[in-house]
Structure formats: structure tokens, C-alpha cells
């Protein structure tokens, strides 16, 4: 599906020694980790571990005080803003599902569809047949075909999550950052989501932040544990769950 012809990079995402402090409070403290091309990675950690701030740094919302963030080996993300980064091929799903509630599902996807984001281009924009087909394909993928012309605001919480994942996919990103996709979903929906994310990975790199251990188990992928703004442990879910330090952090001392 990836129409862009790019060489395959060594690291899709390379985060090294990133520190972010807000008025003395270090939200991220010398954080380092890498994501390989096609990798699916889960990130867990207690509240305030710095998961959202990490996403903010990667997507350009927050500039780090120190450290490097590179995308596809060569692109320094700290030098770009949100829109740039999105167009470079990094998609982000928020913790709280944010779709454009007063546009239809179709229009939401049309908006996210990869293409020129210029002001005048959008003023005279018309959909080509292939673009239309692509939108229909994604609508089917996220299971909203029957409601395509309804307003996104009318969707249930879980459906909004799916629409947002659809918007992410249609951007055709190389790296997806997904913040708590299973929140507010039924068990069945959760399982479906895990399956979808596993399918997506391979073609693209996916980083999932989640609290739900069942969901992480279903993802069946390497896990990184964040604590107080840095990496506490890395490994499979089993390894991590048996790590002394992780147990201490999660259960308290």
C-alpha cells in the first residue's frame, strides 16, 4: 500500500537522551529508545510516567530541553512542527478520541486522506476515483460503511476510536502513535482493535500506549515500561511482568 518509494531505514524512530522539564518538574528524564521499521511496540507505565509527553515530543507539540529525536534515521523531528511531522509520515491518535464531530464520517476520512495540505489546493480540491476508492476501502475496514454519511458526533465512543484509527491509516503514515486505543471499548471491540494493529504493523511501525494488560497480551509484542520519565524495563510482557523494579513501581513499596 505504501506508494512512497523510500529506502528502508535502520531505525524508524530514534529517541536519545530526551529531557523535558516543566518548571523544574522533569516529565521526561534522559529518555532513550528506538523503534525499528515495521515493529509493533507497546509502552506501559503508571500515571505521570511521561507517556503523553513522549508522544508530544515525537509529534512536535513539545520541544525537548535536551536530546535527539530522529525519524527514518535522518529527519530531526525537533526542528519540525506538528503539521510538518504529520506530513512526514507520523500519525497520532489521541487518548480521548478526537474526530471532527460536525463533519460526516466520509468527510472526516476525506480530510485525513494523504495529499496536498495547501490552502489553495484544498479550495479547488476534487476527489479522484482512486481517492474515493481508498476512502471507501478504509470506511469498510473500520466497519462504518453503513453510517458513512452520518455525523461523526453521532458515533459511539468505540466507533469514534475506530474512525480515528481509520483517519490515521488513510494518512498513510510510516509510524503510528496510538494512545489508549482500547479505552471505552467492549471486549469484542478490544480484540478486534488488537488484531487490526497487528495487521498494520509490518508495513508500518506502531507504538501503542496502553493500560489494559489483556490488550497488551493480545498485541503480543515487545513492551517498554516508562517510569518517572525514563525507561525502566524492556522485553516481552512476561519478562517485564516479572521484573522486580516494575513490580515495585506498580505495586508500591
Amino acid at each position: 500500500m505504501n506508494v512512497r518509494t523510500k529506502h528502508i531505514p535502520q531505525h524508524m524512530l530514534y529517541v536519545n537522551g530526551v529531557t523535558v522539564s516543566f518548571d523544574g518538574f522533569k516529565a521526561l528524564n534522559n529518555l532513550s529508545f528506538v523503534v525499528a521499521p515495521g515493529e509493533l511496540r507497546a509502552i506501559i507505565g503508571p500515571n505521570g510516567a511521561g507517556k503523553t509527553t513522549m508522544m508530544d515530543v515525537i509529534t512536535g507539540k513539545v520541544k525537548p530541553n535536551q536530546g535527539d529525536v530522529f525519524f527514518r534515521d535522518t529527519i530531526d523531528l525537533t526542528q519540525h512542527d506538528e503539521a510538518d511531522i504529520a506530513n512526514l509520515g507520523i500519525g497520532r491518535k489521541f487518548q480521548k478520541p478526537t474526530v471532527i464531530e460536525s463533519l460526516s464520517i466520509f468527510e472526516n476520512l476525506e480530510l485525513a486522506l494523504v495529499g496536498n495540505r495547501g490552502v489553495f489546493k484544498s479550495l479547488f480540491h476534487t476527489l479522484s476515483a482512486t481517492q474515493l476508492a481508498r476512502i471507501n476501502e478504509i470506511i469498510a475496514l473500520v466497519g462504518l460503511s453503513e453510517r458513512r454519511n452520518e455525523l461523526a458526533g453521532a458515533l459511539s465512543h468505540g466507533q469514534k476510536q475506530w474512525l480515528e484509527i481509520g483517519m490515521l491509516l488513510i494518512q498513510d503514515p510510516d509510524l503510528l502513535l496510538v494512545d489508549e486505543p482500547a479505552a471505552g471499548m467492549t471486549d469484542h471491540e478490544t480484540a478486534m482493535t488488537a488484531k487490526l494493529l497487528r495487521e498494520i504493523a509490518g508495513e508500518r511501525s506502531v507504538v501503542v500506549v496502553e493500560h489494559d494488560m489483556e490488550f497488551i497480551k493480545a498485541l503480543d509484542c515487545p513492551v517498554t515500561v516508562l517510569h518517572e520519565g525514563r525507561v525502566l524495563a524492556e522485553g516481552t510482557l512476561d519478562q517485564v511482568q516479572n521484573n522486580e523494579q516494575v513490580i515495585e513501581v506498580y505495586l508500591g513499596r
Partner: peptide, 17 residues
């Protein structure tokens, strides 16, 4: 439609690019 999406969810619009 981009304007509407800016109105409803400015950050989202930014992260879409």
C-alpha cells in the same frame, strides 16, 4: 471542511497535517 475541523478540534487538524 478544514475550517470546520479547525473550529471543532484544532489540534487534531494539526496532527492530520
Amino acid at each position: 471542511r478544514v475550517l470546520v475541523s479547525i473550529r471543532d478540534a484544532e489540534s487534531r487538524t494539526r496532527f492530520v497535517g
